[in-house]
Amino acid sequence: DRESFDTALMELIDRYEPGLVLLAGFMRILTPDFVRHYHGRMLNIHPSLLPEFQGLHTHERALEAEVEKHGASIHFVTEELDGGPIILQASVPILPGDDADRLAARVLEKEHIIYPLAVRWFAQGRLALNEDQQVVLDGRIMNTPMQLEQATQ
């Protein structure tokens, strides 16, 4: 069951004493105990501009909604599915003739930029989640997610 799986996974991960746990394509809803255990030190990457298109099939849903842009988000993991405080986002335009695969490929390129960047910030001690569940970067509370363009200036 979920609880037993998460307990075993937590025990395995904890053997390595991680400072940060990264989720990527881990298509499983984690138990509240698991999430709380790694609170403030677990990140996820999600293929949408959260809070839009939480959950699965994000590219298809973005195309169906006929939005102008789509992208990826890095966020701290909380008990709310894809609902944790957003750290960093990168967007791509939706182009005429796009299908889910072409859109996913462009989003993936951005994912490969923003996830390592957020991890670097955390490892450098620049990124944290405060007690009020707010993202703090370089000692300042981020009221809105950082956009890739801002992050690379």
Rank of each mutant, 00 (worst) to 15 (best):
A65V: 01
D14A: 08
I86F: 01
P32T: 10
A118Y: 04
E111H: 06
H59V: 02
G25V: 06
A24S: 15
A24K: 10
D98E: 10
H39P: 08
R28I: 11
D132N: 14
E131K: 12
F122S: 04
V119Y: 02
E149G: 12
A72K: 01
Y115C: 09
P51N: 05
H59S: 05
L108N: 12
L63F: 00
M10N: 11
M142E: 14
N44K: 06
F76E: 05
D14V: 03
A100R: 14
I114T: 01
I29Y: 06
I113V: 14
E149Q: 15
D101G: 13
R102W: 14
S48P: 02
L127G: 00
A90E: 10
R28A: 08
Y115K: 11
E17F: 09
W121T: 06
P47A: 04
L127W: 00
D138I: 12
A90W: 00
G84E: 05
Q150R: 14
P32S: 07
Y38A: 00
A8F: 12
V21E: 07
A72N: 00
F5I: 10
I87W: 03
N44A: 01
W121R: 03
V136S: 05
E109W: 09
H46K: 06
Q89T: 01
G40M: 03
P145H: 04
Q153M: 14
Q89H: 04
D101L: 15
L63T: 04
Q134T: 08
V21S: 09
E17W: 10
H37Q: 07
Q134Y: 03
L95W: 14
M27E: 09
Y115G: 09
E17I: 12
H59K: 02
G83R: 01
I94E: 03
F5P: 08
W121N: 03
E66N: 13
D33H: 11
H75Q: 09
L95T: 12
P145A: 12
H70Y: 13
N130Y: 02
V67W: 08
M27I: 09
H75K: 06
Q134V: 07
A65R: 07
V77M: 11
F5G: 09
S48R: 02
T58A: 10
K110Y: 01
D98P: 10
Q153I: 13
V77N: 02
F122N: 00
H39L: 12
L12C: 11
G55K: 02
A100S: 15
D99F: 03
P145V: 01
L148K: 15
R120H: 15
M27H: 08
V35R: 06
I114Y: 06
D82N: 07
F76D: 06
G25E: 08
F34D: 05
A8S: 14
H75V: 00
R41Q: 06
R41S: 08
R61H: 12
D99V: 08
G125L: 08
E131W: 12
N44Y: 02
R102E: 14
E64N: 13
E79L: 05
S91F: 09
